[in-house]
């Protein structure tokens, strides 16, 4: 690990800070190069400046099997604008000249990384300022491919736990996970349907009993109210399709994409920041139940 807090350390530092502030974080997902790389860089800056605590940066792929229509369209816009793995890393490097604190987790599907070459990708990603990876189509059964090398390289490999991850399987899912655990709020694809916060809360409690890692919750969270409901018990809420819809719609109507994305981030962040202040005494997190929220650590 380098002395300067990059890679896994930058994620750990951010969650430590959130813990100190007694609140959950906002993880904002956007697709790199959507609608083009220059705008996308401005979007990332605007997200970080308006309350996004972590940026999840999608690497576009022609066949995003786990994603719904909104993110599928974002992938196509990004690919049409000429976005590649190499250009995504260049953009991240540019972002790092403005922002050394906000963790950036690259999200994608394995094939573009595999084609780029794992041995070449990991040092390039770390050097560009990447802190962790989320790769949808790499379950623990395929840990040798990328998960273990990523951790050796000093970056987090953030695993997804899902409603189908039962107690028998959970230890395998958690074993090589680092940075945080990403709980998928419902069986399905991104951006379709809305999670039932009560059901998700029970699932998060179940996972929390097996790990000390922070738990982020994503899939189907679009509004400040939804984000706030999740933020009462989770350590972060991930919002994706709402951001890419905002980017797509604003780009189409010729508006200022970065400003629109920043405004959405501010709105969502306000919801999240208000969550435990508003409901703190009744949220059942940390202090009362001993198994929710940041109070555990």
């Amino acid at each position: 690990m380098t002395a300067r807090a990059g890679g896994e350390a930058r994620i750990d530092a951010r969650f430590a800070q959130l813990r100190d502030e007694g609140r959950a974080g906002l993880i904002a997902f956007v697709t790199a190069g959507d609608p083009d790389l220059a705008t996308s860089l401005d979007v990332c800056k605007a997200l970080a400046a308006n309350g996004a605590d972590i940026i999840e940066l999608g690497m576009p792929f022609t066949d995003p099997m786990a994603d719904g229509p909104a993110i599928q369209r974002a992938n196509l816009r990004a690919l049409r604008s000429g976005t590649t793995v190499a250009r995504t890393l260049e953009m991240l490097r540019a972002f790092r000249t403005f922002d050394a604190e906000t963790p950036v987790v690259l999200m994608g599907y394995f094939n573009p990384i595999y084609r780029y070459g794992v041995a070449r990708f990991l040092p390039d990603a770390l050097a560009a300022g990447c802190d962790g990876l989320i790769v949808v189509d790499l379950p623990p059964e395929e840990d040798d491919e990328l998960c273990l090398p990523t951790r050796q390289a000093g970056m987090s490999f953030v695993r997804l736990a899902t409603p189908t991850t039962d107690d028998r399987r959970l230890p395998a899912v958690l074993e090589n996970t680092s940075g945080f655990v990403y709980y998928v709020s419902m069986a399905g694809i991104t951006g379709v349907g809305a999670p039932d916060a009560g059901v998700v809360k029970r699932s998060v409690a179940r996972i929390r009993a097996s790990t000390d890692l922070p738990i982020a919750v994503g899939f189907g969270i679009r509004t400040a109210d939804q984000a706030a409901a999740i933020a009462e018990f989770a350590d972060a809420a991930v919002v994706g399709s709402a951001f890419v819809d905002c980017i797509g719609d604003t780009a189409k109507s010729g508006g200022d994409v970065a400003t629109a994305a920043g405004n959405l981030a501010r709105e969502l962040s306000a919801g999240i920041r208000g969550a435990r202040r508003k409901h703190g005494r009744h949220a059942g997190s940390g202090a009362t139940s001993g198994q929710g929220g940041m109070g555990r650590r």
Partner: peptide, 20 residues
């Protein structure tokens, strides 16, 4: 047992599908 034919095959799916 991991579904490999030489270097090919495997189980490259989202976690949601893995238990299935």
């Amino acid at each position: 047992e991991r579904g490999h034919f030489g270097m090919f095959g495997g189980r490259f799916v989202a976690e949601t599908l893995m238990p299935l």
